[in-house]
Nucleic acid binder design. Structure first.
Lengths: 190, 190
DNA sequence: ATGTATATACTGACTGGTATATAAAATTGC
DNA sequence: GCAATTTTATATACCAGTCAGTATATACAT
């Protein structure tokens, strides 16, 4: 795959996160990427398609990174739910963290019919499903409910961190999650 | 205060929520409000100032509504934290609910220097402080921590509801909150 | 007749997207 | 093996539409 195409995706992702999607014109993207609009429109049919690809790549990279870390550092399924928040914290507190892409995207495209909003909703669903599988493997009493609660905590904390860097929200989300996880597991054991 | 000014504020608020702030031009606002740009710029120095006023009014209306309901329906301070989520649920599940304004605004203006982002962050802080006072009155062990956790749950659930209406996220956030609140109160009693 | 509020018309800058021109690379003929 | 030609990728220039904001003109009330 073309190096310029990769560059455009990377630059667009960066600009979308730091300036917002609607505030970033294609002219700016190609200027920063060191290419031209003609090339951009060779690889992407429209700006919307570029947005969709940026979102997809971002989500894919994130889940790959998370899944990889989890399977490497938390062999026991019962450990993974706990470890999860350690990795999320690592991700959120990294200096180049700029928020969760699909959360912002859904805010910029509030209309539920909009393709960008639809993809955001789909990614949110996928993430929740990923959590549900972790919860089920860990032996949670009601994996889907726990997964929804954990996703609320994670997305809420990330939102808080987006709105104010260094809020430390994820630290307290982690504590809350611990309580919820223990509660869900001990009820199972009883 | 002028009726046209009120109308402009109301229409702008509605359009910002349903279409997004950056996707809503001032031409659209005045057209829907049934007036002209000349009038809009008589009452508001710029679009940014209009955005700021819309946010302020929205936040003010929300906190007034919430505070009013709480003091009317939950006399005992220890009840208020629990009741809080009932009112939030009522607000979120209302048919005309379109999300939490300052959450979306901060996503559309990611730059922390931006006045709109700053106001959003300020409103988020105020809401957390409001929760902290409730938590303190209820006798929580660590009011600030509990308040931060509850705000994460509320904003996370609202985010989930923004991205997909009818997700029922607030219902599960409420359950999680109950656990956190009980935990914070019983440790205090012990 | 004078002051105020509204409406029309316009500005320059920027939007996403494209038609045309030019440079580079691959393919062909011999 | 080399030159001519055709295909492919890049660059320039431009399009109509929209953006926030304003200068001017007009209607209306005092």
């Amino acid at each position: 795959m073309s190096v310029l195409r990769e560059k455009i995706l990377h630059v667009a992702s960066d600009l979308f996160q730091t300036r917002g999607i609607n505030s970033t014109g294609v002219d700016t993207i190609v200027a920063v990427a060191g290419t031209t609009k003609m090339t951009l429109y060779k690889y992407f049919r429209s700006k919307e398609e570029l947005i969709l690809e940026v979102l997809q790549k971002g989500h894919s990279d994130f889940t790959t990174w998370l899944g990889h870390n989890l399977s490497k550092n938390a062999k026991k399924p019962s450990d993974r739910l706990q470890k999860l928040f350690d990795f999320i914290e690592e991700w959120v507190t990294a200096p180049d963290f700029r928020g969760m892409a699909f959360l912002k995207a859904s805010a910029e495209f509030p209309n539920e019919e909009n393709p960008v909003h639809r993809l955001s909703a789909e990614q949110s669903r996928q993430f929740r499903q990923f959590l549900a599988e972790l919860a089920a493997d860990a032996g949670a009493r009601d994996p889907d409910s726990l997964a929804l609660q954990l996703s609320i905590l994670i997305e809420g904390a990330i939102q808080a961190e987006q709105i104010k860097r260094g809020s430390g929200a994820i630290k307290y989300a982690k504590k809350a999650a611990k309580l919820l996880i223990e509660n869900s597991l001990e009820k199972q054991a009883a």
